[in-house]
Design a protein around this nucleic acid. Structure first.
Lengths: 108, 108
DNA sequence: ATTATATATAACCAAAAGGTTATATGAATA
DNA sequence: TATTCATATAACCTTTTGGTTATATATAAT
């Protein structure tokens, strides 16, 4: 299992991902959304890129960042599989659980 | 949001959870499974207990740890929900994905 | 060509995380 | 009772993490 936990383990990074959900953004735009410095944001972006959760495209003097949804989906599946195995869960009920937050037929 | 990312963000702790899936274990047994010291393991156990992902039962001189499956499921649900929101995920396709490991229709 | 803008990078810092050893304590056993 | 075993805890160390400021570089605009 890749270390998506690390990448998602920081609230600034989670917020960056939330921003990128709405659409691609330049580094400048991302920096502007926070109270921390450009190098600090850059480090977060680097971490997200190391985990392949976002990717970077050079556009002149800009760096445009976008969500790597394929990778996120893989991460999602890995985690879902992991928890399903761990709990001997029926994927069906887990699916409901995530989607609706309901039907906790606790088969622990 | 509780700090599940922190609790699950360490591979030693995830391994401990895997061990506890098989059944309750004493601290001694858990320590024996790793190359790190008893106090180090104890710290990991404390973190997992702080997040209520495991619980401890005193049995004489032993501490018996058990997985709190309901809470673990909640923790994973939280993370899965976060990623699902990022992806606007249809969980139907994910079901296939996990079950058959196929159909990577990269919708990046 | 000069200046301004966007980003990259180096050097540094404080706090947190994960580990250690040494030792105390409480329960079981010889 | 003395000893051993399982665990707890204190003190400490190193590395990582998340941040800083200062400065370099590359592109864009004057």
């Amino acid at each position: 299992m890749s270390d998506v936990y690390r990448a998602l383990g920081d609230s600034t990074r989670r917020f960056i991902l939330n921003m990128l959900k709405e659409g691609d953004l330049t580094q400048k735009e991302i920096v502007a959304a926070f109270d921390i410095s450009q190098p600090a944001i850059k480090k977060h972006l680097n971490i997200l890129m190391e985990e392949n959760i976002i990717s970077e495209k050079i556009q002149g003097k800009y760096r445009v960042y976008s969500l790597n949804k394929g990778k996120l989906q893989l991460a999602y599946n890995e985690m879902l599989q992991y928890i399903a195995d761990l709990l001997d869960n029926k994927l069906e009920s887990l699916k409901n659980y995530v989607e609706k937050g309901e039907s906790r037929d606790d088969q622990g």
